[in-house]
Design a protein around this nucleic acid. Structure first.
Lengths: 348, 348
DNA sequence: GTTAGCACTCGGTAGAATTGAGTGCTAGCA
DNA sequence: TGCTAGCACTCAATTCTACCGAGTGCTAAC
């Protein structure tokens, strides 16, 4: 797995008011048009009462300081990652539009089904709201105690251990034996497993019987299989919505391919989101997250917290020139609704 | 959902040997180069001992009959869907290369985990083998009898019905109540449900208690929730591998977007695959499957049959100019291995 | 510090000329 | 009758040129 450099987003030195205005104007227009932005355009657009020449000389400074870049001489400027970072850091919190607000509300009023279904549909919703690819991560049951287990006789030498966790997730594990277990034996093993595992979490050690009969062997195997699961990452669920938006957001075919192939690796997506949250960021721009193939992307993340516990996260992936204001607002709104949905209000 | 025209692949009239050779040469070279193919190239490539002029006049016929098309005067010919169809129908079964054979073997020797995991990984494998996007569909448990059920008390008014089917699939359903059920009541309801449902299939009618107490109410709600599931389509699982290959296979960004957005709709993919199988095809070229947005795609499908029962299908989606021989061979090989894996050889 | 003015740069575009792959047709040949 | 060599023709792609214009950096004046 790609190793990310833990570069903490450097606190961006502050710019004087005029430079800030100019930078923001450049970012805004570039996001809008995808074109390099020239000094005259900034001079006329922004409410600065200065000439393009002045803007120009400020731009030289901004470029020297790393906020702007020039694709080539005699072209306008485009923002660098650092420029976008400044822009985002100084963005006053946006609000979602009325229609979108309504859409979100309608969605959460009508959505039903199991957690997984809700998360998957939420991902689609978020993507439709923003026109960016969305990522919804549901926290695993790593820390959740076991509510119930059941061993089912599937075939002669094939049993299925079904485990229900307190967070409502259900997991199955195959247990293969090299002897034909009778129904009675399976039932007995099931009873013992239930007694043994109930209330424990995946990490905890449990006392397995050391006898050598079929039942004991079944119990041992079942416990071993259950605990073989990686308690950290496994069980986390990723739902990706609107991957077709990738094709709209980037123009280079190669970029599209790279981004899609990252999205295919769900584990990687989970750790990307996790990393960004760990850094305390809500937006990772360009190379800030350290995943090189995503260097032309920005990732917005909003945690979902239920009862003070992290319950997952929602994210958006777009080009660095994405509409940060709208997208962040949408992500925040959806994560809040999601938290509420899984929190007090019980109509899962 | 898009409605497909059930156009049965028309049996293609046979061509005389020379026309066939020319057509095949054109298809082969076009698949290779993605360029229109000229008469002289065919004349020299193929082992026909005729001049380009002769090839040319044959091509005129082939074009009139709908096998070839000309992007514009003074360009070579490219195959039409009908041309590809002829090509595929007269393709002698290909074999997978030695390294790929080995790769498949290694994979199935080492793969482990639950059915879903195996299918998901198989999808990735198939995509890597062929460089096309792969689709693996696991048949639902529609017809599978229930082996076991269990009702678990999740929260005060929230129970979880966990159902294990004979095919090894496990499904959960939330049951909400408007009263606080005691643990004893839930346990009793669980016992009754188990007795009631065991051995039945989802379609079957079961006798629910008509009393008005908590337990009876729980049982009724649980059965209703379980049966509310669409027995036909629901429960079918789709695993899509290598969606990033879409970006490689097609050059128009718009096409990439359209194809990706189809792939996002899993239900649609299932019915696409199902439709093709229903038509008895193993390949659907261009508009043969009737899904307009996929008109520049070809879809290869191979059923997976375990113990005479359809257990799913594996598919490949690529451009119409895909490498049919290799891709079909790979799909066949993987589907056969998959069937064997889930069949006699029991190490799921 | 700001600005008007100006020379300069250089990507993008538009038009013309050229190239060349490939065609369709025809007349002659086996 | 079928095949082929030859040839005129077509047309996308390429190359070249000129040129435009957006945008810059610099400088002198305010």
């Amino acid at each position: 797995m790609a190793r990310r450099s833990l570069k903490k987003a450097a606190p961006v030195a502050d710019l004087d008011a005029r430079k800030a205005t100019i930078l923001q104007a450049v970012v805004r227009e570039h996001i809008d048009t995808a074109q390099p932005v020239g000094s005259s355009s900034v001079a006329s657009t922004s409410d600065l009462a200065v000439s393009s020449a002045t803007v120009r000389s400020e731009m030289v400074t901004l470029e020297r300081e790393g906020y702007l870049a020039q694709p080539h001489t005699s072209a306008g400027r485009i923002p660098t990652d650092k420029g976008y970072r400044y822009f985002v850091d100084h963005l006053q919190a946006g609000v979602v539009g009325a229609t979108q607000q309504q859409q979100i509300k309608d969605f959460f009023e009508n959505v039903r089904g199991e957690v997984e279904d809700v998360l998957a549909q939420t991902s689609t919703l978020l993507s439709q709201l923003t026109s960016y690819t969305s990522v919804v991560v549901g926290a695993g049951h790593a820390m959740s105690p076991i509510l119930s287990t059941q061993l089912v006789n599937l075939e002669a030498r094939h049993q299925l251990l079904v485990t229900v966790f307190a967070d409502g997730s259900v997991v199955k594990h195959s247990v293969m034996t090299n002897f034909d277990a009778s129904h009675v034996e399976v039932a007995e093993a099931s009873r013992q497993l239930h007694a043994l595992l109930i209330g424990t979490t995946l990490g905890a050690r449990v006392q397995v019987p050391s006898r050598n009969d079929h039942v004991a062997s079944l119990v041992r195997d079942a416990v071993a299989t259950l605990h073989a699961q990686q308690p950290t990452i496994d069980g986390e669920q990723v739902f990706i919505g609107g991957s077709s938006k990738v094709a709209e957001a980037f123009d280079g075919v190669e970029t599209v391919r790279k981004v899609l192939s990252i999205l295919e690796q769900e584990l990687l997506v989970v750790s990307l989101v996790q990393d960004i949250l760990d850094q305390g960021l809500s937006v990772a721009i360009g190379s800030e997250h350290g995943y090189e193939p995503l260097s032309s992307c920005a990732v917005i993340v909003a945690p979902v917290t239920v009862d003070g516990q992290p319950a997952g996260a929602v994210g958006l992936l777009g080009p660095t020139r994405m509409k940060y204001g709208e997208a962040m607002a949408a992500a925040r709104a959806v994560s809040a609704h999601l938290a509420r949905h899984f929190g007090g209000d019980e109509r899962a």
